[in-house]
Design a protein around this nucleic acid. Structure first.
Lengths: 250, 250
DNA sequence: TGAACACATGTTGTATACAATTTTGCCAAC
DNA sequence: GTTGGCAAAATTGTATACAACATGTGTTCA
């Protein structure tokens, strides 16, 4: 912790925030555990002021919780919290799809989305999907969701969706893991891909209500699959931010 | 600014945050205006550290925007941002209503909601509604929305809705103003009240999809009315957080 | 007259010192 | 043995000093 890479281009606050977030998400700090400022100072290398700023930001982000008597602790989530977060995010993305459709987007705007989907098609064609292809899929899926969100052209909505994604299990990766952590994973991936295509079609044809409904269904499917995966304990170790869950055992 | 009430029960950070928020919302600080830390120190009476913490929190809250070169400025919102924020909040409340219905709530839980609605009934009975009755209505409406949100029993969703309400024009008060800033205000209030009743009915009967649809419609109506009010410039001065809007003149 | 550079000024990011509050451990009393 | 209280230690909230950076202005040269 002495000779860490002192990148002067970013502030100490940002660096401390990144370091602490990594520690929280990787499970280096247990849920419910109090975070000692001095200890954080040692591990991050920054001084107390930037550490405190980072802690405040992480609290607003939803990863930490303020202790009434002072200081912060790592927030603990229940399994239902996770499912709820995914539905919440999907609901907001549904609104984004509706906005995109109602606002009217040009064919040019939809091109990157379609390219994304074409690339995904190439990946999901193979049935026992390789590990490399899978991580490529995760990245492409995240890209698709981000592009769709942007398409709403609504800064408040985009911001809110970003905030909802701060909870790692509610991020697009969480979507994917939820969909892929079951025996019938491959079929689910195909269904999800179909839904993606239909949403784009709905947006292209200015069908706001339809676009929203599809995205809602997309999210409800992801939530359902995650519920099943949690119950069966299948591959849940793939879920990002797992370290934040209170009791993996029910 | 010398002898402000030094309430030792709350931290300097919280006090600075409240003071600065008031200044922003009341228009004491113009949108796009850079916030000087030293000036904030003078006006709030706190020292630089708590002021900085307050600024970070207000940024996360969405009222401030970070300047790349350092420091913060008051965020500016377009009229469409406001309408979007109201729809966004309504969408999340729709999800809350669905959760409440699906999760199953006892009759006891619904009682406070019904009392709220009964009280509102008493107020909206008079046609030219008095000023006192109107502010009572605003308070009761806020209470109803808060109770409904709580009914979802979903901490992540409740948190997200609270955050969405941080933008003052997206708060329940914003809902009301949007609904009441038109000539046919009284009729609109009656419709809104009807929708409130139907939502409770849907929740009571475990009809999740219906409860959600009604709340969505409730929000879309509010958004539509606000759009009209903004176009006609009728009573838009009643809208909370008006000072944050970039151009009142289109 | 205009543009460019240097300097001065003000502002923010960071570090640290201090004070107050909370927590913890220990000892005594019931 | 348990509980209450007291004291010490640790931790957080606050204030301020310092350093790096950005900004604006004035002067000088083309």
């Amino acid at each position: 912790m002495a000779e860490r890479d002192m990148d002067r281009s970013v502030s100490q606050t940002v660096r401390a925030q990144l370091t602490l977030r990594d520690m929280i998400l990787s499970g280096g700090l247990r849920p419910g555990e109090r975070i000692s400022e001095l200890q954080a100072v040692e591990t991050t290398g920054a001084s107390r002021t930037p550490v405190r700023m980072a802690l405040v930001r992480l609290e607003e982000e939803g990863l930490l919780e303020a202790i009434p008597s002072g200081g912060f602790m790592v927030k603990a989530f229940s399994e239902r919290d996770i499912v709820d977060a995914i539905e919440m995010r999907g609901t907001l993305e549904g609104l984004a799809a509706r906005f995109a459709a109602e606002r009217g987007v040009s064919v040019r705007d939809l091109e990157p989305l379609k390219e994304c989907l074409d690339e995904i098609d190439g990946l999901v064609r193979q049935d026992p999907i390789s590990v490399d292809a899978f991580s490529a899929y995760v990245a492409l899926n995240a890209r698709f969701h981000a592009l769709l969100t942007e398409l709403s052209r609504s800064p408040p909505l985009i911001r809110q969706i970003d905030r909802a994604s701060a909870l790692p299990f509610a991020s697009p990766s969480g979507f994917v893991m939820a969909q892929s952590a079951l025996p019938e994973a491959h079929q689910i991936l195909l269904i999800a891909q179909d839904q993606h295509r239909v949403v784009i079609d709905a947006i292209e044809n200015r069908e706001g209500a339809r676009a929203e409904a599809i995205m809602r269904e997309h999210a409800r499917l992801a939530a359902r699959n995650l519920r099943l995966a949690l119950r069966n304990k299948t591959h849940i170790d793939l879920l990002p931010g797992l370290a934040l869950i209170k009791t993996v055992a029910d």
